[in-house]
Simulated assay, not measured.
Amino acid sequence: MQNTHQAIDLPSLRKQKILLLLERDGKVTASELVDHFAVSQDTIRRDLGELAAAGLLQRVHGGALPRPKDTGKDFFTRVGETNEVKRHLAQLAADRVEDGQIVLFDSGSTTLQIAQSLPRSIRLTVVTPSPMIAIALADHPHVKVILAGGQLNPATVSTSGQEAVRLIQSIKADLLFTGVCALHPQVGISSLHFDEVAVKQALLDSASQVVAVTMADKLGAVEPFVVGPCSRIHTLITEWHVQGIEAYEQLGLEVLRVEIE
């Protein structure tokens, strides 16, 4: 008889599934994972050890817990911590927007800052899964805002689900400002939240040009859920002092590094 777990026997896929179970249930036990995947105790111990070493979960006796919450700040905390560097990067991004464009805005504190940096006179159609961005642009008289509906994630203050994905897939946009949880040259774009992945992938697929604006601490980082390779981004705007930026340039990204005086 064919093994029903055959499709998830590859270690990388199994570890991805472990993270999904952890996000859903709030904890995992080694014994349950052994039964779920039909593998040995040693295999599960090794998987949990590798995930813990990568900072993706907290190893405890008999299983694992989510990593401490202070590794990922909530949306309103991040908005409140906006500094002069982020404002400057956001303004540089906003200056790339042209009248008459259809622009996608991913959720995030930086993309919100970009939206807030747009002049009130600009004429645009904006599509976003972020209610905060929709509200920020509501007083722009020549901006038509389309809010992708769906289930709201309180941690990210963004919508997800098939309704949001279908709407975004129906759009052919000129430009996307993608949110960046983590960006690694080899791993690619990754997210802390599984429910964001399908929406972020739909946004990437629907834009002719993709711009990522991020502070230095997001570069070289990895989160549990992979959205896509770095090559999906056309332009990366970041801080001047970032180390290892050549790795992104070698992947074909246009990299703009901003020095703040």
Score class of each variant (00 low, 15 high):
137 L>G: 08
139 D>Q: 10
139 D>H: 08
140 H>L: 04
140 H>A: 14
142 H>P: 03
146 I>K: 12
147 L>W: 12
147 L>G: 09
148 A>Q: 01
149 G>L: 10
149 G>Y: 07
151 Q>L: 14
151 Q>H: 13
155 A>I: 11
156 T>S: 13
157 V>A: 10
157 V>M: 12
158 S>R: 03
159 T>S: 08
161 G>Y: 07
162 Q>S: 15
163 E>G: 11
163 E>C: 11
163 E>R: 14
165 V>L: 10
166 R>F: 01
168 I>T: 05
168 I>N: 03
169 Q>G: 15
174 D>N: 15
175 L>G: 00
175 L>N: 05
177 F>N: 05
178 T>F: 05
180 V>D: 00
180 V>P: 01
182 A>S: 09
182 A>G: 08
184 H>P: 04
185 P>G: 05
185 P>R: 08
185 P>N: 02
187 V>N: 00
187 V>H: 00
189 I>A: 12
189 I>T: 08
192 L>G: 15
193 H>W: 12
196 E>G: 06
198 A>D: 15
200 K>F: 04
201 Q>N: 06
205 D>G: 11
208 S>Y: 09
208 S>H: 14
208 S>Q: 15
210 V>R: 03
210 V>Y: 13
213 V>C: 13
215 M>Q: 15
215 M>W: 03
217 D>Q: 14
218 K>I: 02
219 L>N: 13
220 G>H: 04
221 A>C: 06
222 V>Y: 01
222 V>P: 01
223 E>L: 09
225 F>E: 04
228 G>T: 07
228 G>P: 07
230 C>I: 12
230 C>D: 07
230 C>E: 02
230 C>G: 10
231 S>Y: 07
232 R>E: 12
233 I>K: 06
234 H>T: 10
234 H>W: 07
235 T>P: 00
240 W>N: 14
240 W>P: 05
241 H>D: 14
241 H>G: 02
242 V>C: 14
242 V>R: 04
243 Q>P: 05
244 G>N: 13
244 G>K: 13
249 E>D: 08
250 Q>N: 15
250 Q>G: 15
